[in-house]
Nucleic acid binder design. Structure first.
Length: 443
RNA sequence: CGGAGUGUGGCGCAGUCCGGUUAGCGCACUCGUCUGGGGGACGAGAGGUCGUUGGUUCAAAUCCAAUCACUCCGACCA
């Protein structure tokens, strides 16, 4: 993309209502625009990141055997009355009345609807297990939206729902998601820890929250320090018994404040006791027959007997992750995107637009990086160098190549790595080679 | 939902307490000149129903009332 043709409305000054880094930088870098309290438009740059995160989540879900579909944002109140949640959910649910005076709602989650879909079509134990998911906008009328997309009212969530014959099988489905989540966050450059969690209004008795540590996190968390740097499980054999891998994680203490057990925490060696703040980026539940029983979602077993299915649900806050990643990866100059989610793979800064040689080399780099699948952003505007440098730092592309007459006299361009600030003088060819190799396995 | 605030060009703010010329300032924007390797200089411009409605007054951004929106602090949550 050529910057001169892109839509990137940057702000020089920080808007007054932003108090945390991710919110500030998302506004300043032209990623989002607030439309109402807790409701945002995703501008082109922000949208690209959102889509990249969504795609990583999707790929990992698919690997684990979950099947993607799409349910509507607007639901009928009837389903929610069946499970008793229409009254139980409270004012967080946005209730709507249509022209026929029918009670509708903007879905805050989809357990009721997916259970209805399941019971409509699935009749036999032979069809189980199943895990269905979608990535869809949700609305929860938060009492107090804040922190930009980290606590919006409208947010994009991946929610998966598993169906099994027995509690034991459901545990297997749960384990798949548990480990898949760790891989998912790791791919985005995040260190996430699974913590014992409260089940809230979703209900159930087995639940974990996935937390990334950040000073601006909303929840207080306690865990064994080794969990933070534990490598992700990596390639998984989903047909094998995954319990040992899960147990490995659960052996070390980790809990959010509402589930915190001070005695258990005290047993951790003192230098490993980690008490910090965290951002919840995922939450998984096993809730058994909580919805399948009232909604009569049952299948025939081998003996022709109806068996109520065991369910679980698994959420990832996709839009929240955009903010979460920035909280975890930024400095005083702006965002530092992990390679897997960066909106553009590299920036090209032409310091003297109009200079024949600088234009030629920049265009050539742009063409070669594009062909290599790097998706470069070419700053072809005629601003001064300083403006371009700070702009590039703010939007945080992992690499940028500076092209200017001074360097070209020696036949070199400068490649800067955003995270380290390191700069290296290379020939244009070597610069392309370097960046391409850095993206090996990601593009 | 309790408490505290804020609404004035695109953004950040001053002016409001104590009513009175043409509502200012910085940044951004447009045009021109000089510039050009870390947010440049000078000159010339454009842009505002002072959130909304009503009231008081000869006169309202300023006082009063209502209302809407947004923010912050707390209690609750992907």
């Amino acid at each position: 993309m050529r910057l001169s043709r892109y839509f990137l409305p940057l702000l020089k000054e920080t808007p007054a209502d932003a108090t945390i880094a991710s919110h500030k930088y998302m506004l300043r870098a032209g990623m989002i625009k607030q439309n109402s309290a807790g409701i945002y438009s995703w501008l082109p740059l922000g949208f690209k990141v959102l889509k990249k995160i969504e795609q990583i989540v999707r790929e990992e879900q698919n690997k684990a055997g979950a099947i993607e579909m799409l349910m509507p944002t607007i639901q009928s109140a009837d389903l929610w009355r069946e499970t008793g949640r229409y009254d139980a959910y409270g004012p967080e649910m946005l209730r709507i009345t249509d022209r026929h005076e029918r009670d509708m709602l903007y879905g805050p989650t989809n357990e009721d609807m997916i259970t209805d879909i399941f019971r409509s079509f699935v009749r036999s134990y032979k069809d189980l297990p199943k895990n269905l998911y979608h990535i869809q906008w949700k609305f929860r009328d938060e009492r107090r939206p804040r922190f930009g997309v980290m606590r919006g009212r409208e947010f994009l969530m991946k929610d998966a729902y598993s169906f099994d014959m027995t509690a034991e099988d459901a545990r297997k489905s749960y384990n798949k998601m548990f480990l898949t989540y760790l891989n998912t966050y790791a791919r985005m450059g995040l260190k996430a820890v699974a913590m014992k969690a409260d089940t809230g209004p979703i209900g159930g008795d087995l639940s974990h929250e996935f937390i990334i540590l950040a000073e601006t996190g909303e929840s207080e968390v306690f865990c064994h320090a080794d969990l933070v740097n534990m490598p992700p499980p990596g390639e998984l054999d989903f047909d094998a018994d995954l319990q040992p891998l899960v147990d490995e994680r659960l052996a070390l203490y980790a809990a959010t404040d509402e589930m915190h057990n001070a005695d258990a925490f005290a047993k951790i060696p003192e230098d490993k006791q980690l008490s910090a703040r965290g951002i919840e980026v995922g939450h998984i539940f096993y809730f058994g027959e909580k919805y399948s029983e009232p909604m009569n979602a049952a299948v025939m077993d081998q003996d022709g007997k109806a068996v109520t299915v065991h369910m679980g649900s698994y959420g990832v806050g996709v839009s929240r992750l955009v903010g979460g990643i920035i909280e975890a990866s930024h400095d005083e100059n702006g965002i530092i995107w992990p390679k897997a989610v960066t909106p553009f793979g590299a920036g090209i800064i032409n310091l003297k637009v109009g200079d024949e040689e600088a234009d030629k080399v920049s265009e050539d780099l742009y063409a070669k990086l594009s062909t290599a699948g790097i998706d470069p952003l070419y700053d072809d505007r005629s601003d001064r160098g300083g403006v371009k440098f700070s702009r590039m730092d703010l939007i945080g592309l992992p690499y940028s190549i500076t092209v200017g007459p001074r360097g070209l006299k020696e036949g070199i361009v400068e490649v800067k790595t955003r995270a380290t600030g390191e700069r290296e003088n290379l020939s244009p060819e070597a610069a392309v080679k370097f960046i391409t190799s850095e993206y090996e396995g990601i593009v």
